[in-house]
Deep mutational scan, measured.
Amino acid sequence: KVTYHVPNEEFARKLYKKAVDANLNVEIRVENGQFIIHIE
């Protein structure tokens, strides 16, 4: 399980798409202006 803290929405979207394309379980949320992405 990996967690990324991404300040940039564009990068967060790319990361999310890559994980989904790889059939990984992804959860994304915004906290204090940062995008928190959990990948399992």
Rank of each mutant, 00 (worst) to 15 (best):
K17R: 08
F35A: 01
K17C: 14
Y16G: 01
K1G: 14
N25G: 04
N25C: 13
L24D: 00
D21H: 08
Y4P: 02
Q34T: 12
Y4C: 14
K17M: 09
D21T: 07
A22M: 14
E10G: 05
R13V: 08
A12P: 02
L24N: 01
V6G: 12
Q34L: 14
N8I: 10
K1C: 15
L15W: 06
N32R: 04
Q34C: 14
G33R: 02
A19S: 04
E40G: 12
R13E: 09
E9V: 08
H38C: 11
K17G: 04
H5K: 13
F35H: 01
L24V: 03
R13T: 07
K14V: 10
K14G: 04
V20R: 09
Y16C: 15
K1D: 08
E31F: 08
P7R: 13
G33S: 03
H38M: 14
E40H: 13
K18M: 14
D21L: 12
R13I: 12
Y16H: 05
Y4V: 12
E9K: 06
I36L: 06
V30F: 14
A22D: 05
F11Y: 12
V20I: 12
V20L: 14
E40W: 15
K18F: 13
Q34D: 05
V26M: 02
E9Q: 04
Q34R: 10
K14W: 15
E27W: 13
E9I: 09
V20E: 05
I39A: 01
V30S: 05
R29L: 10
K14Y: 14
N25K: 14
I28A: 01
Y4H: 04
I37T: 01
L15Q: 02
F35Y: 12
N25Y: 13
Y16V: 08
F35L: 06
V26E: 00
V2M: 09
N23P: 02
A19W: 12
V26I: 06
Y4W: 09
H5M: 12
E27S: 14
I39N: 00
P7K: 15
E31G: 04
F11G: 06
L24P: 00
N32K: 07
K1V: 11
H5V: 14
D21I: 08
E31H: 08
K14I: 12
K1W: 15
N8S: 10
A12F: 08
A22S: 07
G33Q: 03
E31D: 06
H5C: 15
G33P: 00
I39T: 01
V30L: 09
Y4G: 03
G33C: 07
R29E: 06
G33E: 03
P7N: 14
F11E: 15
N32L: 06
V30N: 06
V6A: 11
H38T: 15
K14S: 07
G33W: 13
N32S: 05
T3R: 05
T3K: 06
I39R: 00
K18N: 09
I37Y: 01
E27D: 07
V26T: 01
R13N: 10
L15P: 03
E10P: 02
K14T: 09
K18S: 10
Q34M: 15
N25I: 13
N32M: 06
N8C: 15
P7V: 15
R13Y: 13
V30H: 10
N8K: 03
F11T: 14
D21C: 13
N8D: 10
H5S: 09
V30A: 05
H38R: 10
E31W: 09
E10H: 06
V2R: 10
V26L: 02
L24E: 01
R13C: 15
K18R: 08
E10R: 05
H38G: 02
T3G: 04
R29H: 11
A12W: 11
L15S: 01
K1N: 11
E9G: 06
L15E: 05
A22H: 08
I37W: 01
E40Y: 15
H5P: 04
I37R: 00
V30I: 11
Y4F: 11
E10I: 06
E27F: 12
A22K: 08
V6R: 02
H5W: 14
H5E: 06
E40R: 11
P7G: 13
D21M: 11
I28T: 01
Y16Q: 03
I37N: 00
I37E: 00
V20S: 06
